[in-house]
Simulated scan of single mutants.
Amino acid sequence: MARPVSGVGMAAVLAGSRLLPVLTVASAASAGPLADALAAGGARCAEVTLRTPDAEQVLKTMAAHGALTVGAGTVLTPDQAERAVAAGARFLVSPGFDGEVIDKAQELGVPVVPGVATATELMCALKAGLDTVKLFPAEPLGGTRTLRALAAPFPQARFVPTGGIGPDRLASYLAHPAVLAVGGSWMAADGHLERGEYAEIRRLTAEAVERSAP
C-alpha cells in the first residue's frame, strides 16, 4: 500500500477556491497573457494539461506569475510528474488511477488527484491514502447523478468533477457537499487562445468565479 501523502493537501492548495480552470495551451507565448486574464477575472488556481509540446514551458511561466496556484494535468507517467513539479506545479491531476504516478507524487510531497469513474477506482485511491479524486469525464459518466451515487458510500471522499461541464452546470455540482471544486475548460477554450481573446477569458472567468461563490 502506498503511504499517505505528506505535507499540504489538495483542499489547502485550493485555499477555498471552488473553481479550477483547466487549460490546454498550444503556445508558450499565450502563458503570460492567459495568467493575467485569469487572475484579473478572480481565479486563484489553474490546471495546465500536459497535452501540448509547449505545456511544460506554459506551466513554468504561469507558475512564476505569482497570482495563481498552478498545477499540472493529464499527468500519465512518473517522469511527467517529476518534470511538472520541477517546472513549478503545486499539484498533479491524472485522468485515471495510476499507482506509479501516485507514488511519485507522494515521493515529491505534492497533492495528486487521480481520475476515477467507478467505485473500484475510488476505493483504490482511498487505499492509497488520498481523499480527493477527479470524477472524470463527469458529464458523460452521468453528471451529478453519478456523483451522488459514488459519494454516498464514501463520505470521506472529496471530488473535483471535470469533463463536459459548462457554466450552466457549475452550480448543480457545487451544491453537493462532497465537491471540493469543479474543473472546466470553457473559460479559456482553444478558440479563445487562438484568437487572443484575453478580455473574453477574463469576462468568462469573472462570471464563473461569481457563480462559484458560496
Rank of each mutant, 00 (worst) to 15 (best):
G42K: 03
D98Y: 06
A67Y: 05
A87I: 14
K60G: 13
T61W: 04
V85C: 09
A64N: 08
L38K: 01
K60Y: 08
E82I: 03
G66S: 12
A55V: 14
A64G: 15
P53Y: 09
T74I: 06
T49C: 11
D98M: 11
G66R: 06
A46T: 02
A37R: 00
V48F: 02
V93N: 00
A87C: 15
C45I: 03
A72D: 04
E82W: 00
T52N: 03
A89I: 12
R90P: 02
A86G: 04
G71Q: 13
L59C: 05
E82C: 02
D98V: 09
R83F: 04
R51Y: 12
A87S: 15
G41Y: 07
V58D: 03
S94H: 06
G71W: 05
A55N: 00
A37I: 02
E56A: 07
G42L: 10
P53G: 07
A86L: 08
G66E: 12
A72P: 04
A67V: 11
L76E: 06
E82M: 00
G41N: 07
T77E: 09
V93H: 00
A86K: 10
A87R: 14
R83H: 12
T61L: 14
P95V: 13
Q80P: 00
G41P: 06
A67F: 04
A43K: 07
A64D: 14
A40P: 00
A72E: 10
Q80E: 13
A39D: 13
A46W: 00
A37Y: 10
P95W: 11
V75C: 09
G66I: 15
D98R: 13
G96K: 03
P78S: 06
E56T: 10
F91R: 02
P78G: 08
K60R: 15
V75S: 08
A43N: 05
P95Y: 13
A46L: 01
T52R: 07
H65N: 15
A55Q: 04
A39G: 04
A43G: 07
D98I: 03
G71I: 14
A67E: 15
G99L: 11
M62C: 06
R51N: 08
G73H: 01
L68M: 06
G41T: 15
H65G: 15
G73D: 11
L92T: 12
A43V: 09
F91A: 07
A37H: 08
A72S: 07
P95K: 07
A39V: 05
D79C: 01
G41K: 01
A81P: 02
A40N: 07
